[in-house]
Simulated assay, not measured.
Amino acid sequence: MLPTVIAVSIASLTVGYFVGMGRSLVSYNSNSRRILSASDDDDSDLDTDDEMAAIADNYSSSGKGLEGEECKMILAVRMDIKMEKGKIAAQCGHAALAAYKAARKVTPKFIKQWEKRGQAKVAVKCPDEDTMLELESKAKELGIAARSIIDAGRTQIAPNTRTVLGLGPAPVSLMNQLTGHLKLL
């Protein structure tokens, strides 16, 4: 009798486990598909088509002759707000992804160069929001993709605070012209 109870218990646990896993996998896959389909064409974090075209035009004029140069991405972190190391890392991740998504549309040749040559990323200190906005404006004039991250304010920082500016990827010479005066983080 006892061996039968143990066998039925083991069989029940095994079946229950696999049924539960199957249900969670089905749920996971349907959620993944829904998220992917919603985000495939979601460019809400990018500028309007007119702004993107203007940046691309600036790229066409400033990017001539730089097609073979090594490219890098710059992450300019605001120093006037207090962020813990983990918060800085998370915000830099957001900025890198946002800049990359913008650069795919604006400067695809620079993206290819950057991907082939190591995907260099450099974090620098940005003293304040005014400097960050100035850098973003100059970057767009030079035809460099630029995206500033505005924090939602769920953890350490007040809502709607600009934290990190992602720049590029773009040729090292253009990036140095733009951010060469900033110190490394």
Results as ranks from 00 to 15, higher is better:
3 P>G: 02
4 T>A: 12
5 V>S: 02
6 I>P: 00
8 V>M: 08
9 S>E: 04
12 S>V: 07
13 L>I: 11
14 T>R: 10
15 V>I: 13
18 F>W: 08
19 V>L: 14
20 G>Q: 02
25 L>W: 07
27 S>R: 11
27 S>I: 03
30 S>Y: 04
31 N>R: 14
35 I>Q: 12
35 I>Y: 10
35 I>G: 01
35 I>R: 11
35 I>N: 07
38 A>C: 00
42 D>N: 15
44 S>M: 08
46 L>W: 08
47 D>Q: 10
52 M>Q: 13
52 M>V: 12
53 A>S: 14
54 A>E: 10
55 I>V: 09
56 A>Q: 15
57 D>P: 02
59 Y>I: 00
61 S>Y: 04
65 G>I: 01
69 E>Y: 06
69 E>D: 12
69 E>R: 07
69 E>F: 06
69 E>W: 07
71 C>T: 04
72 K>Y: 02
72 K>W: 04
74 I>M: 14
74 I>F: 11
74 I>Q: 06
75 L>W: 05
77 V>R: 07
80 D>G: 06
82 K>R: 02
82 K>C: 02
86 G>K: 14
91 Q>E: 04
94 H>S: 09
97 L>F: 11
98 A>S: 15
99 A>D: 10
99 A>T: 05
101 K>E: 12
101 K>W: 09
102 A>G: 02
103 A>I: 03
105 K>C: 02
106 V>M: 14
106 V>A: 14
112 K>I: 06
114 W>V: 07
115 E>R: 15
118 G>K: 13
119 Q>N: 03
119 Q>G: 00
120 A>W: 00
122 V>W: 06
123 A>L: 13
124 V>N: 07
127 P>A: 06
128 D>V: 02
129 E>M: 02
129 E>F: 02
130 D>S: 10
130 D>C: 01
132 M>T: 01
132 M>P: 06
135 L>F: 04
136 E>V: 00
137 S>L: 04
139 A>L: 06
140 K>L: 09
144 I>A: 12
144 I>K: 14
146 A>P: 08
150 I>E: 15
152 A>Y: 13
155 T>N: 07
157 I>T: 10
167 L>R: 09
169 P>W: 10
170 A>S: 13
171 P>H: 12
177 Q>I: 01
177 Q>A: 12
178 L>R: 10
178 L>K: 12
180 G>W: 08
183 K>C: 02
183 K>M: 06
